[in-house]
Amino acid sequence: MSAGSSTVHQGISRAVILVALMLFAVLPLLSMLTAALAPQNSTPPGLAWPEDPQWNNFVDAWTAANLSALFRSSVLIVLGVVPAAVAMATAAGYGLAQLNIPGGKLVNALLLVGLTLPFEALITPLYYNIRSMGLLGTRWAVILPLIGLLMPFGVFWMRSSFLTAETALTEAAKIDGANPWQIFRQIQLPLAVPAVSALTILFFLATWNQYLLPLVLIDDPTMRTVAGGLGAFQGEHGTNIALLCAGSLLIIAPSLIVFLFFQRHFVRALLQGAVK
């Protein structure tokens, strides 16, 4: 690090390593893109820009996979899950961190059980319960359980944010006679905005990318999330590589766009949150 030449040298090797890793990360996507632009029903090579890019494949894939219906459905499910889940997790996180709620320890412990629980462990009874509630096949069948399943992570996330929040202002407000709601609204919530928005993005991705729940709980493929519908699409168009890749890219796009749009915010929040 001391000699200038070694710094330059290091800089280059750093860049080489990073570029190699970046290539590895995007290569499958690039391969899909070039395949998506190849003529339909052809056998495209793994990675080569087609001579005559068939951008129309994306339009065809949109129709073939019934993506209008799937996107609408995904959006409805996201709208059903994310705001409610974020609100509940925020409230519970605040309650557990800042208010001495009776039984708080127990609640903590209960949530801890769910933190590492694989979704598969619940899917069987969930199916029968949802059915006896008469919700099977409706979007509620995915929305309600998903909210429940997101709670452990969400509550711990918000709780740790509120735990580290500054207390001086809160103390002052308490002395002024503010009630917990006022403190929450006027002091704590504004401070927690970064954590809340990161959680919103995380919940969005978890919902949008969800595959198992819609697959099992919603029979009509057009009412599932796009990820759930993609599986059915793969079964039907397995040989039409171009169409399959185009459809997959369209389905990936929202996750990617949301991530790229919020990435600054997102990566930082996630890195902080993960090791906090």
Partner: peptide
């Protein structure tokens, strides 16, 4: 995506002790 949180570390052991009856 799931991220492990660690703020409750010191109380984790006790947490499990409480959790068991709750599961039962």
């Amino acid at each position: 995506m799931r991220t492990s949180k660690t703020p409750s570390r010191p109380s984790r052991r006790t947490s499990y002790r409480i959790a068991l009856p709750a599961i039962l």
